[in-house]
Design a protein around this nucleic acid. Structure first.
Lengths: 302, 302
DNA sequence: ATTCGGCATAAGGCCTCCTTATGGGCCGTG
DNA sequence: CACGGCCCATAAGGAGGCCTTATGCCGAAT
């Protein structure tokens, strides 16, 4: 394609030259301006000459001791300064303004059972960073949604994103102590068959049954009511309505204070895990680093 | 010198990228923006990516049918548009505004005896061009003074400037018919010795006396009162106060209407001339071309 | 299902823009 | 008055920013 930018070129000045002009007009010195811009005096001279040729008139009068603006230069200088002030202001705002809000896309269960409990310490550590949660189970596309960082579960293989494993998405049955007591305690896997199974259609149940040596076909007979999220089923379990199969890491608190008990050491693991992910290109963005460092440290503490 | 522009770089965005961003934000399309800027879509994509990396956040969400601004983009776009509007406005003003006034540095005599009589026709031809005369006999330095074009006399060899010869700075004695009649007419050069010589110290008188075969030492005896400009001496001559030595081209009107007469065909010429000069680099500036073309045509008409 | 519109990416080359080196003009000082 | 210092201009040379061409991918619409 031929270079057809002619029209543009006459509407807008060469921007690099304008930047130099702004500095020179401010200092009324090529040398000082060049210093400020981190370039040589010759480069500043070159750019000003360029701009003067484009404008069609000299912008500075070269006088012995110092330079002064010509009439054309005086016309140009104030507006240029103002324009640059605007630009740098907006640029700074876009940089740091965006740093003030962190958009996190997170899975339902993780949000309610992990984030909700720990986010407080992040806020304390980063009081100027507001976190906004986008809670849903879809896999967000960073190119299409305004999301900085996400929690996902799965195999940990997504293209173009940086991934950090948070914990394995293992699974094991849990229930309330009261429910267990109602049948005289849950001592061996087969005891579970005497209790309601929450979301028996979940593939985890089948895997765990198989691993525990229980008849998988039992599951199919059960009334299938899936609530769609571990958090809901766990709440049902806490309420004593049945046995749920959950990832322990998400229920540390309930298991610790006895609202839920894990009757068996047998833990299923299909290789999936919970991951922290964000675009590779943004790995050094301060707010993203802050959140990553915090969450990894928090996970490690458990 | 190491490239130390780091500080700058973080204060101001890459300007070329900003220019592209402005267009993309306006069109909400990489392709259309690239078209407007006279470049390829790939180039626009490249610049936006660059800017996004600098800002540290995506500026656009790439959605199937069209792109939309992210929050960071929305923060940036209005200010950028405004800044560019400012810039292009000021740039245009500096370009055309400077075109509206033509600064002419001119010699005293030329101003009063030639320009003053002809400038009217230039104004008629270029009503939007205001001419400002800077009348003095020094040689202006275009780099140091806010001057577009100048009239100089001399050898015609100045560096860095474009020169056009207007007419030779020849010289010959002139006087009022009345003064000539007062001694019964001026018929041969020696007759002049019976009349007052205006500015006898002028080197032109010596040259002309020598050429006319008159005794040069006569000049030294005369009371020397130099008024410093042909125009003044010519006025004195018109008033009948003596004989002045002047360049004919500057007194065409007086010679034509009889206020002055040129008694002898003998004309001195030291090789000097009147020149139109202006910086070579500005030879294509419209207002300079306009003035040059006009003055050369006007001179040729005589 | 295929095509089309739109953006992303890779590879390669040009040309802008910067650097180094040098010179000139003017001013202050010894 | 000469010399050194400061500042800008200019020339030559080189690196890299930026653009182009070519191609791929994705989603939408025919």
């Amino acid at each position: 394609m031929p270079n057809l930018e002619a029209r543009q070129i006459f509407q807008l000045p060469p921007l690099q030259a304008i930047r130099v002009f702004e500095a020179v007009a401010r200092h009324l010195s090529f040398t000082k301006a060049a210093e400020e811009l981190g370039m040589t005096q010759a480069a500043a001279s070159y750019q000003i000459k360029l701009l003067e040729e484009r404008v069609g008139a000299p912008l500075f009068l070269r006088q012995p001791k110092q330079i002064v603006l010509t009439e054309a230069g005086q016309r140009l200088a104030p507006a240029v300064s103002e324009a640059f002030a605007l630009l740098s202001g907006a640029y700074a705002a876009a940089r740091s303004g965006a740093d003030g809000v962190l958009y996190v896309s997170t899975l339902l269960t993780f949000a309610s059972n992990w984030l909700a409990r720990h986010l407080g310490s992040f806020q304390v550590a980063h009081p100027s960073l507001a976190v906004r949660l986008d809670t849903s189970n879809r896999v967000v596309d960073f190119a299409r949604e305004d999301i900085d960082i996400a929690i996902r579960s799965g195999g940990g293989t997504w293209p173009g994103v940086e991934v950090h494993k948070l914990f394995n998405a293992d699974f094991t049955p849990v229930l309330s102590p009261k429910l267990a007591a109602s049948i005289g305690g849950v001592k061996e896997p087969a005891d579970l068959l005497r209790l309601p199974i929450l979301d028996p259609g979940d593939i985890w149940w089948r895997d765990w049954f198989a691993a525990a040596g229980l008849p998988v076909e039992e599951l199919a007979k059960r009334p299938g009511s899936s609530m769609g999220a571990q958090a809901y089923e766990a709440n049902a379990a806490i309420a004593g309505q049945g046995v749920a199969i959950v990832t322990r890491a998400l229920f540390n608190a309930e298991l610790a204070d006895g609202r839920l008990i894990q009757p068996f050491d047998l833990v299923g693991d299909d290789g999936h895990a919970y991951w922290l992910v964000y675009p590779q290109a943004r790995r050094n963005v301060p707010k993203i680093r802050a959140f990553r460092d915090w969450i990894l440290a928090e996970i490690a503490r458990q």
